[in-house]
Design a binder for these strands. Structure first.
Lengths: 209, 209
DNA sequence: TAGATTGTTAATCGATTAACAATC
DNA sequence: TAGATTGTTAATCGATTAACAATC
């Protein structure tokens, strides 16, 4: 499995293909062509084959792909063949929303710790996970084998929290705060700006007429 | 203001620039160069100027941009100079999380209606908005001047709900369900897959070693 | 005027699409 | 063998970057 430089768009599509295949498995479909996948998820068949080609040959010429087999390969490629432990920093509106939304659970992610600075909520629980103070962050990350940090604190606190996360040994960070964060090269950072999605719609609404 | 074909990536960056300028306004900075914006949000200065060039000339050569003025232009370009009314369909985990997270409010979006099919929650409130049955959807969309629909129902119900939203006169749809939706050409559709973000991180974690 | 920075054109880079030989 | 569909190469398209004339 040679990995040179995989476009991020390809990775995102692989995630979407895998979800579509999961659906097909439930419908007990056994074989599928790149063309059918393409229609199912709204891309071109060449795109599907190209995306897969980065990782190997998974199909049979003249036949297509075995649904269950390809699904297995995709889950492995995406690293979803084992569980990842997550720590959430910031249990305010956005943090609790993220914790409450369980959509990640069945894709291999477990919320293993939640931190906040607000004395009033420290000690309470969110989805069965106790909200704790920042001073036990490193201890929890190490003891619970947490590799993934989710930042849902206000912008002004984001960089400080990031530094603490990095120091604690977290390997990747999902940043929901509207701040550009500095992290060392070896730490994987992904910025998710929820508002941007609505604002893109707003833009097209405002200009398409 | 000529708008040929604006890359979506440009629109997303404009949204990010605007937020950065907002921050600079709070710090009472008056003038800024494309280079400074670039550093602030993590892109190249040519990128910043190119993005702006799609919409006009907003700066002064040798000087830069007036922070407040550019912010105003960007808000206008993004259609954030007036409010948009939103309807949320599906008040489950994801829908309530979306409603509870208020980050959109101060960017011009108002949650004006929330619908669900579950008798047990119809009639209860979420952030001061009453959860109602689907049969008053069209009535509410028209009476409350709602242009934007947010879909947070389970995958199996997504297409049906979409058809109803389109019929009610909604102009744009933000789809959180993992389904490819069919909508007429004039309706603007944007798919947001929350899980994809975690899965992209999972991919890089799994493969970078 | 000298220095700075914009707006814009041209060059580069990367991703998508089209086409087709390989092969089941 | 004929038909279908993959895997891959080459062509196209679009977006980013570099460079610089315009100009404050």
């Amino acid at each position: 499995m040679k990995v040179y430089k995989i476009p991020e768009a390809t990775v995102m599509r692989l995630s979407i293909y895998s979800r579509y295949l999961r659906q097909l498995m439930d419908e007990e479909k056994e074989t599928i062509s790149s063309g059918e996948i393409a229609i199912g998820v709204g891309v071109s068949s060449a795109q599907v084959r190209k995306d897969l080609a980065y990782f190997g040959e998974f199909g049979t010429r003249g036949v297509g792909y075995k649904v269950e087999e390809l699904y297995g390969y995709l889950m492995k490629i995406l690293g979803l063949d084992h569980r990842w432990n997550i720590i959430i920093i910031g249990a305010g509106k956005l943090g609790s929303a993220f914790a409450l939304y369980q959509g990640f659970m069945d894709r291999g992610f477990t919320i293993s710790a939640i931190m906040d600075v607000d004395e009033k909520i420290i000690g309470t629980e969110l989805e069965g996970v106790k909200i704790e103070a920042m001073d036990v962050l490193e201890e929890r990350v190490k003891a619970r084998n947490i590799t993934l940090g989710v930042i849902t604190v206000p912008a002004f606190a984001a960089q400080e929290v990031t530094d603490q996360l990095v120091a604690s040994g977290v390997k990747a960070i999902l940043n929901f705060s509207p701040r550009v964060l500095k992290v060392p090269n070896e730490v994987i950072l992904r910025n998710v700006d929820l508002s941007v999605n609505l604002e893109v719609l707003s833009f097209y609404l405002a200009f398409n007429r």
